[in-house]
């Protein structure tokens, strides 16, 4: 047994300087980078509402939330760099479409209720995914996840509170919430990835203890958590097949449109092009700042 295999078998963490199979390193870099890209692209759908928030309180909250997502991206790029990946290179891969990010951020945010529903459902699904990743076998990734999970709870609660406020408002406001739930429910279920029998890389990730639960297990957990929350809020989840199954002690639910997930992942979602164009523009617009700061630093401290 190699040191790496022993470390995994003993449920200890793999650390950056350790010897590890090349495939493990590559998988880890890819997963961390995709996760980082998701956090960074994830700032856009909600960021669009910062200037249109209905009150100063909501604006400050949304600003803090979006800033947290930037932070999550940076914790993760930091973790990827411990494996020899280069942050600038990862950003280029994202912009050139060579690396992916979560499908969920390719949907548009049509009303302010979307901000609430994203906090409740999208951050809620992210929490389901991320809590087990706090025990992921790669140390820097697991530690980044612990930090992230601590902050996600605020994200979910501010969203739910926003929705409760709107549900206590006018019929038009309640309709906005229901409309947003209708649009985000299925894409949220897709965040857990394809069904287990169509998820070929999962077995290896489970064996390496990068992943701790299967996609379908986590999806079920999310549905079970969300149904009572929807009831408390007074909204209907748009799934006629949703029903408590006393035998399984879980909710039964319908099948997400997996073709839609495939389309959105492969670049054909409602906002894919817009999201990448925006990221590219931010990178281009920031180039002179990076250069100027570097030139200024070089002037102040002569290179040794």
């Amino acid at each position: 047994m190699s040191t790496f295999e022993e470390t995994i078998a003993r449920d200890q963490r793999v650390e950056p300087g350790d010897e590890m199979p090349e495939a493990y390193r590559k998988t880890m870099i890819r997963q961390i980078a995709q996760h980082a890209h998701s956090e960074i692209i994830g700032m856009q759908p909600e960021g669009e509402w910062i200037t249109r928030a209905p009150s100063l309180r909501r604006k400050a909250i949304l600003l803090a939330k979006v800033q947290d997502e930037a932070g999550h991206g940076l914790y993760l790029y930091s973790a990827a760099e411990t494996l020899g990946a280069d942050r600038g290179d990862l950003t280029r891969r994202l912009i050139e479409g060579r690396q992916k990010y979560s499908s969920i951020f390719n949907y548009p945010t049509l009303s302010f209720a979307d901000v609430g529903v994203i906090g409740w459902l999208v951050d809620g699904a992210a929490i389901c995914n991320q809590v087990p990743l706090c025990r992921s076998s790669f140390g820097p990734y697991a530690r980044a996840m612990i930090r992230i999970c601590k902050e996600e709870s605020f994200h979910q609660r501010q969203g739910y509170e926003l929705l409760m406020t709107m549900m206590g408002g006018t019929p038009a406001q309640r309709d906005m919430v229901q409309d947003a739930v209708n649009r985000w429910w299925w894409p949220s279920l897709m965040m857990f990835g394809p069904p287990d029998d169509a998820s070929p890389n999962s077995a290896q990730s489970m064996a390496w203890k990068i992943k701790r639960h299967s996609n379908d297990e986590l999806r079920q957990r999310f549905v079970d958590m969300s149904v009572p929350q929807a009831e408390a809020l007074g909204v209907t989840l748009p799934d006629p097949e949703l029903a408590w199954n006393a035998g399984r002690e879980h909710y039964d639910f319908g099948t997400p449109d997996w073709d839609e997930l495939k389309r959105v992942i492969s670049g054909d979602g409602p906002c894919n092009a817009e999201r990448i164009a925006r990221r590219r523009q931010a990178d281009d617009d920031g180039a002179w700042v990076r250069e100027a700061a570097q030139a200024f630093a070089a002037k102040r401290v002569p290179a040794p």
Binding site: L74, E81, A293, Q294, F296, A297
Partner: peptide, 30 residues
């Protein structure tokens, strides 16, 4: 030209009486 800023390791003292602890890294010009 590579305009990547250098990488820095970050250590934070959570409160008085505790050591600085490594928390991660970031990129900065100086």
């Amino acid at each position: 030209i590579n305009h990547e800023w250098p990488l820095f390791e970050v250590f934070v003292r959570a409160k008085r009486g505790l050591n600085h602890v490594h928390v991660g890294s970031l990129r900065a010009a100086d």
